[in-house]
């Protein structure tokens, strides 16, 4: 019954090994954030955030990229959130769990979630620009090129497709947190199914729906691949003012500055600054989602 020295050492070694690989993860994150913060913090100023790039993007600010990112996620949310919410309502409230149609939809949602994002970009190019856009030009513009080229609308819709699974799954989870008892209470009062959904289920899960929206937005804010072919620009001198305009985005701006710039070393501070802004943006979005989710859990346990 006495522990052998050998087994004891082995135990300590294994524990040490697992612990160090866990610590490695923390180290990677700390180093990554530290490098970005240290490199970027001096770059951040009101001017950097609010002015246009200058001198062939070797100086000046990143306002168009911030503006473009914001506009992209807003249009994307306007498309993805209602569509995703309605799908989630169908799946949780209407579809029979075992019906073929529900299984096919769930399979499609899972498949959408694992498709590489560059494929979405190619799909957006092929479907939205070359098909829908060109058809629109032929029908409404007399063949003149307006919609059959990359713009913020097609980029946002492509991004909406990418974030759709996130929205659907989180809204579904949120709807499921509303107790069956409450649905029964509403129906027993003579409410129709839709009245029950609209007045009891959705109000009861609104913070969960918000969480899903924020997660989708934060995913969209960081992605570049889907918008590469569908609307993002290397540089535009004016802010997008119409859905058919091209636009700049933070993620792509980092790529451009670090690979396409006339003088990569000179733009290094701008690269750090842009990265820090993008990182802060996604952090803020994720943290608000976590806070919202925490508040729902608290409410549920009360």
């Amino acid at each position: 019954m006495i522990k052998s020295f050998k087994n004891n050492i082995k135990g300590i070694l294994i524990e040490g090994l697992t612990l160090s690989s866990a610590l490695l993860i923390i180290a990677i994150i700390v180093v990554m954030i530290a490098v970005i913060v240290i490199g970027g913090k001096n770059q951040i100023s009101w001017e950097f955030l609010t002015s246009f790039p200058e001198d062939g993007m070797t100086k000046g600010g990143i306002f168009p990229a911030i503006y473009g990112t914001a506009l992209l996620v807003i249009i994307m949310s306007v498309a993805a959130v209602p569509f995703g919410t309605i799908t989630a309502i169908y799946l949780t409230e209407y579809a029979n769990e075992n019906a073929i149609i529900a299984k096919v939809i769930r399979f499609a949602v899972r498949t959408l979630a694992v498709i590489p994002s560059i494929i979405y970009g190619l799909f957006g190019l092929g479907f939205f620009i070359k098909f829908v856009g060109v058809q629109m030009d032929n029908t409404f513009m007399g063949g003149q090129l307006k919609w059959g080229q990359p713009n913020i609308l097609w980029a946002s819709l492509t991004m909406a497709l990418l974030t759709l699974p996130v929205v659907i799954v989180s809204v579904e989870e949120a709807l499921k947190t509303v107790p069956k008892d409450l649905r029964a209470a509403s129906l027993a009062l003579g409410a129709t199914k839709w009245q029950t959904i609209w007045k009891v289920v959705i109000p009861g899960s609104i913070s969960g729906i918000m969480t899903g929206t924020i997660l989708a937005v934060s995913r969209g804010a960081g992605e570049v691949a889907p918008i590469l072919f569908t609307g993002v620009a290397y540089y535009v001198a004016t802010l997008p003012s119409s859905l058919s305009d091209q636009f700049m985005v933070l993620g792509y701006h980092i790529y451009v500055m670090s690979t396409q710039s006339a003088n990569v070393d000179q733009t290094l501070p701008i690269q750090f600054g842009t990265t820090l802004v993008l990182l802060a943006l996604t952090f803020i979005l994720n943290i608000s989602a976590i806070i919202l989710r925490y508040r729902i859990r608290k409410k549920k346990t009360n």
Binding site: P179, D181, L182, L189, Q195, G204
Partner: peptide, 27 residues
């Protein structure tokens, strides 16, 4: 509406007292 039901476990909506009672008439 004609045959109401009260359940084993009380199941008020997460609304005000007033809105709970007004729910049926409102719908």
């Amino acid at each position: 509406k004609k045959v109401g039901m009260v359940f084993q476990k009380s199941n008020p909506f997460a609304k005000s007292i007033y809105e709970n009672v007004a729910y049926g008439p409102r719908i």
